[in-house]
Design a protein around this nucleic acid. Structure first.
Lengths: 132, 132
DNA sequence: CGGTATCCCACGCGATACTG
DNA sequence: CAGTATCGCGTGGGATACCG
């Protein structure tokens, strides 16, 4: 059985397998959190989104949102008001990744349990997740 | 509804949500491919593994394998022979991530289709994956 | 309020050489 | 064959300042 490992090019992106492609689109430090929060709240303004993500800078949030929009995972609606108002929400494509996040979330929980259980017992681990 | 975003520490690793934890353990450029190939072949020697992954350097492969081993996703068996022989295989924990890869693989395929379908039609896209 | 524009750093990843 | 040891770069991510 021969395994190919060609590099594919699509729309200015290059990747060697679909896992890698998926990571490029929804991976990284912030994108999963953005998508998950949008899924929970349906619609969020820029400021509200920022408030749910302590630690992110405006520049970073804008950048991630632009990329997600370019990949059509989210839609952006700007109202011509003063002060400005911009609302973000998931597209259908964006909603379709949520099950993957949940699967990874669950796996991470199990992994944490198994690691914690292996460390010297007696310590108690609080479970506080960033997106629940 | 208040959302916390505390940073958790576990076993020398820090993360803010389980998605992030999962990515730290099985993410990156090479780990998914290593795990997927081990899943397909059950047992692989260092050299055989390297052969299935064009482009990876020895140093990188060793590093990734050590990390996966430390996280108990793979097991390493070294035989005291000359020349040396080392065999890698998935642990039960390692096997438990495979469904996630498959889900991401499937999502990546659908995403590629939707992007390709959106570009000027007439071009033909060959589908060659690194891990199948 | 919802952004850009600059500047900058850490680190994931790689190239190369050497070894039991 | 299956590894270390060194060196080094590109880029994902961050700090800060300014704008319509």
């Amino acid at each position: 059985m021969i395994r190919r490992c060609d590099v594919k090019e699509l729309d200015g992106r290059s990747y060697r397998c679909f896992f890698e492609l998926t990571l490029q689109v929804v991976g990284g430090k912030w994108k999963p959190i953005i998508l998950y929060h949008l899924w929970l709240e349906k619609v969020l303004r820029f400021g509200a989104l920022k408030k749910t993500m302590p630690g992110i800078t405006q520049r970073m949030l804008t950048k991630q949102l632009r990329e997600l929009e370019a990949d059509r995972l989210i839609s952006r609606v700007a109202y011509n008001e003063m002060p400005p108002r911009v609302e973000y929400s998931l597209t259908e494509l964006g909603e379709s990744v949520i099950p993957i996040f949940q699967a990874m979330r669950n796996w991470g929980m199990e992994f944490e349990k198994s690691v914690a259980g292996e460390l010297i017992t007696g310590e108690h681990y609080e479970s506080v997740d960033a997106v629940e």
